[in-house]
Every structure is written in C-alpha cells, then in structure tokens.
Amino acid sequence: MADPTEIYTSPHVLEYPYARSTGPIIGAFLTALRDGKIVGVKGSKGRVIVPPTEYDPDTAEETSGIVDVGPGGVIETWAWVDTPRFDAPLDTPFAWALIRLDGADTAMLHVVAAPTSDVVVTGTRVTAEFRPAAERVGSMHDLRCFVLEGK
C-alpha cells in the first residue's frame, strides 16, 4: 500500500521553440548584429533609441531612420555577478550593465566581461565584442559581450 500521507510532487517541463517575426525595425537591429554592427532608430525629437523599437517608448510616436551607433559606449550602471546562473550569457564572473553606446540616447542591457569587479564602474568606457561571423545568426547573442575599451 502507498504511504497514506504522501503528498505527490512531480517534475513538469514547459518547453517550446518560439519563433518570432521581428518586423522591419527589430529586424534591422538583428541584421546589423549578424553583420557585426549595432544600430538604433530615431525617435521623437530625433533621439536615438537602442535597441530600436517601432515606437518611441515615451510618446508612442512612430520611429524612423536607422542609424549606426557604437561599437564603443559608456557603462551607465552595472551589477556584478560572481556566480553566474546556468542560463547567464557568460559562464565566468561578469557584470550586467546598461550601456549607452556612442551616438545613442538610451542605454542597452548587455553583459561586460572583466577580470575583476573593481574595474567595472559607472562611467567606464566599453566596446562591443562580437562572435565570429560564422557563428552569428541575428540575435543578441551575436554580441558576445562588451569589454573594457583599450584593454
């Protein structure tokens, strides 16, 4: 007989390979990443939004005009991860950071690879490090990480 007080538990996996159509603006951004570049889009009053969206997030007005930004930029804020989660973009200690790319008016979320936490501070200049062209498919992961400029 089964244990009359046992509470049954069971693993449950929810898994699906979502495939998302990007539309032209996000498509242009991902295409640029695949080509080893970063682009933004012009929003209301000409401010440059990165990553680009079809709309200016503050006014909802339609955006237009893809512009090149980066590959260098400045750390606006950061969070140092000593023990990366299994699903983190890097498996060695790194920083999540909001990075304002040169030519952009908004900051983008990505990761910064650095040897130690003390070299990652707000205001630090970083530059994009892409994966090799053959590995790039048109996703955020084409941009492997940012690294400290000149290091």
């Binding site: 929810l14 898994e15 699906y16 979502y18 998302r20 159509s21 990007t22 498509g27 991902l30 295409t31």
Partner: peptide
C-alpha cells in the same frame, strides 16, 4: 535581412 528570431524557452 533577418526577419525571424528563434527564442527557445
């Protein structure tokens, strides 16, 4: 141009 993004979850 990239038009689709695969995001396995």
């Amino acid at each position: 141009p990239v038009t689709m993004l695969s995001t396995p979850i």
